[in-house]
Amino acid sequence: MQCQQCDKQAMFHITELETGDVRELHLCEDHARVYLNQAEADSQENESDGTGGAVGVGQTAKELSEIDQRVCEMCGITFFEFRNQGRLGCPHDYVQFEEELEPLIANIHGELKHTGCRPKRERSAEDQSVLPESTEKLTSVIGMRKEIREAVEDEDYEVAGTLRDDIQKILHQWHAEESKE
């Protein structure tokens, strides 16, 4: 039998008995470990740092596996990898996984909005939902570096060269803005 969350063989067959509901899970070793750790963390309501908790409460295995497979378009980390390690891959993850991170962050901090200091250049920005333009543009460089590596692997040196130029332009633009201040 195949794991419900990936292509590997299911090694763990778990039956969850909830009020009026019997749920069967068939998971490979990795996904079972994540699931069981999750269940343990939930039942203990432990005082750990909270990463890896929160997400998954009240969600079905199918929903969870969908969330787990989401990928950051910049650094390539999957939500599953994040849940396993407790560390995010790049600043863009906070945009990419904003919805998924929300319950987790609420669980850790009890709040969902930064009220402290801001870098001077970001203080005027009004849009609350996205990265400020400069951060957004700069995080795109992370994805472009990944594309360069892929292009080099495919021996597509022309694409790699263009991407390198584009990165330089973005970085130069930031440096130019910085020196204006």
Partner: peptide, 19 residues
């Protein structure tokens, strides 16, 4: 250029430090 988000504040590798 610090990584900063209007809503989440200073962005950190671990969500326990964000804001």
């Amino acid at each position: 250029p610090y990584a900063f988000h209007q809503r989440w504040g200073y962005l950190t590798a671990c969500p326990t430090n964000v804001g």
